[in-house]
Design a protein around this nucleic acid. Structure first.
Lengths: 154, 154
DNA sequence: GAAGATTGACGGTTCAATCTTT
DNA sequence: AAAGATTGAACCGTCAATCTTC
């Protein structure tokens, strides 16, 4: 019997689990977590800000989770929630200047750490791995369509 | 500049995040979570049982987490903790017969769902992806050695 | 003192229910 | 009624501190 596809998917889970765990330690000296860095990274690339719903879609997490994440980050004055006049249901979430500074300080460290992981591998192989991971992602999305309705990913 | 290795690692995180999220939904009808299934799966393959420390190493999670996981599973009577006469610090954790039944009921469903994700892909490419994921895993372990000491993985 | 297990504090995540605004 | 945001309950996970046993 052929176990390879099964093992490959399980390995993706294992690797990402470890990556998440160690990233947390990497970010620790900066007083931030991986989940919070992801928010910083998204907002850093969108100076005009975005709604919590957009963040929820891009981060692929529940919107209630975004609320809690932003609460903590707002407390530390890294982000602000601005009311939107045109639609009073939504907040426009932006980086503060100190949030932006933090992002620019951490970004190169994280980037270097991540790049070092595959620095010795062949481009061709990394491309294939990337492709397979993308396929798994899209197939898992099919999964959920067949089982339970889920919001459309952005 | 070459973003590919960076994007590949980030994609591994994204894919696994989604996989984790949807697996939770897949397991839901069985009244179990992915983390709990992983315990079931390990114990199912080790009828003689194992210590919580061993579980912690194999699952790559903190030992305090194992305590909480097992508390919930013990409450549902899927596992038991037996005291070990030779060393009264450790518990020998085993599946109950109802835990074993549950595992055997869920296992084929999970396996089929996972296998379906890569059913159309070429063996050669899946092999490459598997290899790259393994490399990332081992490199992340190097990471932690350089930054902070970490327990040796089993 | 070291090892296995536990506890408390905290952050991340989902889900169901709710509130306000559209 | 539908959409954006929030809340409360529950689970997953880490870390630091503690307890018992070795």
């Amino acid at each position: 019997m052929n176990n390879l596809p099964y093992e490959c998917v399980i390995q993706a889970l294992r690797t990402a689990n470890l990556l998440w765990r160690e990233s947390r330690r990497l970010f620790r000296p900066f007083g931030i977590t991986e989940a919070q860095y992801n928010v910083l990274h998204l907002l850093g690339q969108h100076p005009e800000g975005m709604s919590q719903k957009e963040l929820s879609n891009l981060l692929v997490v529940d919107s209630s989770n975004v609320t809690l994440l932003l609460n903590r980050m707002e407390k530390r004055k890294w982000i602000t929630r601005r009311t939107v006049l045109q639609d009073r249901r939504v907040y426009n979430v932006c980086l503060t200047s100190s949030g932006n500074t933090l992002w620019e300080k951490i970004r190169p460290h994280y980037r270097d750490a991540v790049l070092s992981l595959l620095s010795k591998e062949q481009t061709k192989e990394v491309e294939t791995a990337y492709k397979i991971l993308k396929i798994i992602e899209s197939q898992v999305n099919q999964w959920s369509i067949n089982h339970q309705p889920l919001e459309v990913m952005s």
